[in-house]
Amino acid sequence: MNNILILLGYLLLMNILGYVTMWSDKKKAKRGEYRISEKALFTVAILGGSIGSIAGMKKFRHKTKHWYFKYGMPAILLLQLIVAFYLGTVLNG
């Protein structure tokens, strides 16, 4: 039970980070400031922030015209769900 709470807390933080990172990069883009790299945006998603990143993309209309974000972020989420399902079934019998 304690491990599940730690995992959920981690995922919550990563998704908040994904959302805020998209917001921050959009804000910087509007101001013409130095941007957050696409590699960093994808890294946050891969490390568990895919839902927050997707939500940020949609809310702030950011990176939605780039095919690798439009399809890449949902693909990351799908792979994470498949891995979670697999691990859940393997670890629980």
Rank of each mutant, 00 (worst) to 15 (best):
M1N: 10
N2I: 12
N2A: 10
N3L: 14
N3I: 09
N3M: 11
L5Y: 12
I6S: 02
L8K: 12
L8F: 13
L8T: 12
L8R: 11
L8C: 15
L8S: 14
L8W: 07
G9N: 13
G9K: 14
Y10Q: 05
Y10R: 07
L11T: 02
L11D: 02
L11E: 01
L12R: 04
L12V: 12
L13N: 06
L13Y: 03
N15H: 07
I16V: 15
I16T: 06
L17Q: 07
G18R: 09
Y19K: 09
Y19A: 00
Y19N: 02
Y19F: 15
V20D: 00
T21D: 01
M22E: 04
M22G: 03
W23K: 15
W23H: 13
S24L: 15
K26P: 05
K26R: 12
K26M: 03
K26N: 07
K26E: 01
K27D: 10
K27L: 05
K28A: 14
A29T: 09
K30F: 06
G32D: 08
E33A: 13
E33S: 10
Y34W: 14
E38V: 03
E38W: 07
K39P: 02
A40K: 14
A40L: 10
A40Y: 05
T43D: 05
V44W: 08
V44E: 03
V44M: 11
A45C: 11
I46P: 05
I46W: 06
I46M: 12
I46E: 03
L47Y: 03
L47Q: 04
L47R: 05
G48D: 05
G48R: 10
G48F: 08
G48E: 05
G49W: 04
G49V: 00
G49F: 00
S50N: 09
S50K: 10
S50W: 08
I51W: 07
G52T: 01
S53W: 02
S53V: 07
S53L: 03
S53A: 15
A55V: 11
G56D: 02
M57E: 04
M57Q: 12
K58M: 09
K59H: 13
F60P: 07
F60W: 14
F60C: 04
K63G: 04
K65E: 11
K65W: 08
H66M: 11
H66D: 10
H66I: 11
W67R: 11
W67F: 09
Y68S: 12
Y68F: 15
Y68N: 15
Y68V: 05
F69D: 04
Y71V: 07
Y71R: 10
M73N: 05
M73R: 06
M73H: 06
P74W: 13
P74F: 06
P74S: 08
A75V: 10
A75P: 03
A75F: 13
I76P: 05
L77Y: 09
L78E: 04
L78R: 08
L78M: 15
L78V: 15
L79F: 12
Q80T: 06
Q80G: 03
L81G: 01
I82V: 15
V83G: 02
F85P: 00
F85E: 02
Y86L: 15
L87E: 03
L87W: 06
G88F: 05
G88S: 06
V90T: 10
V90F: 14
L91G: 00
N92I: 06
N92V: 02
N92Y: 13
N92P: 00
